[in-house]
């Protein structure tokens, strides 16, 4: 029996064929009003030269915003920064998360306690995180420099977030610190679905740790890791608060991701049209990544079925 007929039946025995529509309508209307319409308006803005100083004036200028972006070195800088930031986030959170998950996937005293501690950064508000890291990385009194100074590892003038060559890597480290707990716990959950007998069979076959991971563990967790990679990509492209509060995109544009660039153009330079154009580029990248992901995932499932 198909689930389709089952669902229709359920709607009927609940007394109305319109029930699903009554359930869906409020949420759909809500999303249309507060996501759909603003998105359309943002698209419209991207072909105008509307300014924050006069936000209701609409003046159609075609693709001028986009062609200006193509000639703008700052824009290419943001693309580059975004690419490094996203790649760093994905590799860092998944690498560290996988590592931590594998370490926690064994019985030891205090395991659930450790797991609770590790999840904390993910639960904390970005504003608080930005605040405390800025304090810890304070050039003069920050605990990081105070710890590193005696070891001779302090960067020039003790600058981290205000250092053009270190700011991006520092922001990246803080982001990974906040997000790896999430990937670790999700991967840990999927590790627990690896059949124990399979690991034992591999051990009896003489497989070492790496061979066990490669032959038994990885095939089970691979879909989860792939989905996490997609999620980390989309979240990194979207991330605003943490970066904005840590560096505001500086110094000299070294942490100026697309979303930060968009906010700067809109609210600091007052050019809403240009900001919207940057937003469209960001959106397009997210959507393309997702489509690519699902295309690959579908091909993988099909290949799986063929076997």
């Amino acid at each position: 029996m198909s689930s389709h007929s089952h669902g229709t039946q359920l709607a009927r025995i609940h007394g109305s064929r319109w029930l699903p529509y009554m359930l869906v309508l409020p949420g759909v209307v809500y999303l249309l009003v507060f996501q759909g319409i603003p998105l359309l308006q943002e698209m419209r803005l991207s072909v105008s030269n509307t300014s924050l100083l006069n936000p209701s004036r609409f003046n159609f200028i075609g693709v001028a915003n986009f062609s200006r972006l193509l000639r703008d070195p700052n824009f290419f800088n943001s693309i580059q920064v975004t690419a490094i930031y996203v790649a760093g986030c994905v590799i860092g959170t998944i690498g560290l998360g996988l590592f931590a998950a594998l370490l926690m996937d064994r019985e030891f005293t205090g395991r659930s306690f450790v797991r609770s501690l590790i999840i904390i950064p993910w639960a904390a508000p970005p504003v608080a995180i930005a605040l405390v890291f800025r304090w810890m990385l304070n050039g003069q009194y920050g605990i990081v420099n105070r710890g590193l100074e005696p070891l001779g590892l302090m960067p020039a003038e003790g600058l981290w977030l205000d250092n053009p060559s270190l700011a991006l890597i520092t922001v990246l480290a803080i982001t990974i610190w906040q997000l790896f707990p999430f990937t670790a716990v999700v991967i840990l959950a999927s590790l627990q679905s690896v059949p124990k007998e399979l690991k034992e069979a591999a051990q009896i076959d003489g497989a070492g740790l790496w061979a066990q991971f490669h032959a038994v563990t990885w095939p089970v967790i691979r879909p989860t890791v792939a989905l996490l990679a997609l999620l980390m990509t989309i979240w990194s492209i979207r991330r605003f608060e943490l970066i904005w509060l840590l560096t505001q995109g500086g110094p000299v544009g070294s942490t100026n991701t697309l979303v930060i660039d968009l906010y700067r153009r809109g609210f600091i330079i007052n050019k809403l049209g240009e900001a919207a154009a940057v937003g469209m580029v960001g959106m397009a990248v997210s959507v393309l990544v997702t489509i690519a992901y699902f295309a690959v995932a579908n091909r993988a499932t099909r290949a799986e079925k063929m076997r």
Binding site: Q35, I37, P38, L39, Q41, E42, L45, P55, I237, R238, F240, V259, L262, Y263, G266, L272, A275, A276, G279, G282, M283
Partner: peptide, 8 residues
């Protein structure tokens, strides 16, 4: 991104 929808 939230930042995209702030203006509209």
């Amino acid at each position: 991104p939230e930042a995209v929808l702030v203006v509209p």
